[in-house]
Structures are given as C-alpha cells and as structure tokens.
C-alpha cells in the first residue's frame, strides 16, 4: 500500500478522489462531534443521576418535552444532512458525466477474470494499461453474472451487467500499479477475480500499445506460454504445484488419463487441450464444476500453441512427449 494513504482512506490517485475524500472527512468529523456529544451526555447523566444503593424509591422529575430543544436537534441534523446530500450529489455528477475526449476501453467481466479491448485492436487480460493524466472511459459488460469494477485508489466503482453496457470513467493522476477488484459477488473465484491497473506515462503507453500485437517473437513457445499463463489469467484457476483449484492443475497433466464427468475417460493430448480452451463445457474433468469460460476470440492460434507447449513443459516425466521433433514440428506449423 502506498504511504500517501491515510488511516481511513487509501491513496487517492484520480481526479475525483480528493473531492470524495473531502466529503468523507466532513462526515467523519461531524459524526465524531455528534457522537462525542451524545455519548458524553449519556455518560455524564449516568454518573450524575445514578441511583444510590440506599435510595428509597421516589418520584422523579416530570420533564417530558422542551420544544426549543427539540426543534434544535431536528433542524441542525437536517441542515447537516442536506449539505452532505448536495455535496455528494455534485461529485456524483462528476463521476457520472464522461469527459468528451476520453480514451475508450471496452471492459468485459466474466467468471473470473477481466479482459480489456483497446480501440487499436489489442486485447489484454487482467491487466489494463492506461496513460496517466488522461480521462479513460470504460464501456463495460459481462458475459455471465453481475460483476463490479472497483479500484479503491481511484474511488471508482461500477457494476458490470450481463444485458447492457454500463459506463464509468476515471483519470489517474499518478503512475503506478493499482489493484482492480471485483466488488459484486460472482461465485467461487470472486476473491481471485483481481486485475491490475497499470498507469504509465504517455510514451510508455504508446510503446505498450505496440507490444500488444506481440506474438512471442524471439521467445521460445514454452516461455511465451508461461507468460500467457499469467497474463491471460489461466493462473486464477489452474495451479502448477499440483494443488486443486477451480480447475485441474497443469503440472503432470499432459499425457495423463483423465476421468470425465460423464463417466468416460480421455488421454490429455494437444487436441483435448485445444478443445478445452475453445469449448470448455464439452468435456469436463470429473470432480470439477463446469465453470470455465471459452477463450474463443480471446486467444489466437499461436497463443494456444504456446499454452500447449507450456503445459507439456510442466511434465516431470518427459516420456509422454513422443520425441523432440514434435515440438519442432509445432513451431514449424506456426511460422
């Protein structure tokens, strides 16, 4: 966490953050004052008018109203909450009205990752890269259930719905990495549906845009696959240390005989992996929920090949992989 955050609020690194925080602290201090008065008087009365142990039951004061006092404690809170209302509404309108020159990114939420489409045609998963000091408009929808786009440091949150677009925007004021949370409960992987907002300088952003088209040149297929494993969020559901997560672990997966939920079994080979990526509902490994989304349209052929190569590399016993030439064949096919 950044050190510029306060006891109550995380660092405020967007253009609206200071306004939101201003109101937050106004309410906080007003609340502390009211609370102190209420509890202070309660304590004072409790001590001053406590019943003595030897007291005989007696009549008490019949005071039961005081119009001036009652008007006072109705009017003052009313004025205070009206200030809060107007203030809150004004900032809310700023959050709602999208600046005309905003750079638009399409956000898609689905169980349990985020994907981002840039106007230039690039696509990224679980990492949204944006230029600093530039309003970013987010056009969002969901492929399944309701999600919610939440970046605490920007004080921005908007539900992502399956049947319509929701729109929000932010303008980051400081370069850095921020956590993107899903704030609307969406099932098993809800707490792992976490992305990264990388705010970079204008120059870096341009360079990154070019890199988006990157398809693993100069990298081995295995290494490219390893990179995609993280960047395309496979890691959320598939572990490589043998532990069970939402999906089966990838290590020692290739060549293994897997039992399917319909009772049959299958040998994990290249075609099965490819099919599982593009049409995940077709053959479900026994013991797992049918929850994987399709990556049709998100992963290119080359990227699928890279992931297959990566899964193969996670094999301790290499004897399943027929021979070295196969890998070469694969890379030849891709060129």
């Amino acid at each position: 966490m950044d050190t510029t955050g306060t006891f109550w609020m995380p660092p405020g690194n967007s253009t609206i953050a200071s306004e939101v925080d201003g109101l937050f602290y106004f309410i906080l201090y007003a609340s502390i004052i009211i609370f102190t008065i209420v509890i202070g008087l309660t304590t004072y009365f409790s001590i001053k008018y406590r019943r003595r142990a030897d007291a005989v039951a007696h009549k008490t004061d019949g005071l039961d109203h005081n119009l001036k006092l009652e008007i006072f404690w109705t009017a003052v809170p009313l004025i205070l909450v009206m200030i809060v209302f107007v203030w809150g509404f004004k900032t809310y309108m700023k959050i709602s009205v999208i600046p005309k020159d905003a750079y638009e990114i399409k956000v898609t939420g689905q169980k349990w990752f985020w994907s981002f489409d840039y106007p230039e045609g690039g696509n990224s998963v679980n990492e949204i890269v944006v230029p600093v000091n530039k309003p970013i408009k987010l056009l969002m929808d969901s492929k399944d259930v309701i999600h919610s786009f939440f970046v605490p440091e920007f004080r921005v949150k908007m539900d992502v719905l399956p049947n319509r677009y929701s729109i929000t925007w932010f303008e980051a004021t400081k370069v850095g990495d921020y956590t993107l949370y899903c704030a609307e409960f969406c099932g098993k992987g809800h707490s792992e549906m976490i992305g990264k907002v990388r705010v970079v300088t204008e120059e870096e952003f341009e360079k990154w845009s070019e890199d988006l088209a990157f398809s693993g040149e100069g990298m081995t297929l295995e290494d490219f696959g390893a990179k995609l494993y993280v960047s395309k969020a496979c890691i959320t559901c598939h572990k490589i240390d043998g532990s069970n997560s939402t999906g089966p672990p990838w290590n020692n997966l290739f060549g293994k005989e897997e039992k399917l939920s319909d009772g049959t079994s299958i040998i994990v080979d290249e075609n099965y992996i490819r099919e599982s990526i593009l049409n995940p509902m077709k053959k479900i490994t026994a013991g797992y929920q049918p929850v994987m989304p399709t990556f049709q349209g998100i992963l290119k052929d080359k990227q699928i090949d890279a992931l297959i190569a990566y899964i193969k590399s996670l094999q301790e016993d290499k004897s399943f992989i027929k021979d070295e030439s196969l890998q070469e064949d694969e890379s030849l096919k891709n060129e």
Binding site: V20, L23, I27, I34, F35, V84, W87, K157, E184
Partner: peptide
C-alpha cells in the same frame, strides 16, 4: 452515523460492497 457516509452518493460509490 456511518449510514450518512453511505447515503452520500459519491462516498457510497467508493464504500459500496
């Protein structure tokens, strides 16, 4: 009193959920 934070639109956006 904490309900007041949540009734205020802009603050609620941050605190919601």
């Amino acid at each position: 009193l904490t309900g007041i934070f949540l009734g205020a639109l802009s603050v609620d956006i941050h605190l919601h959920d």
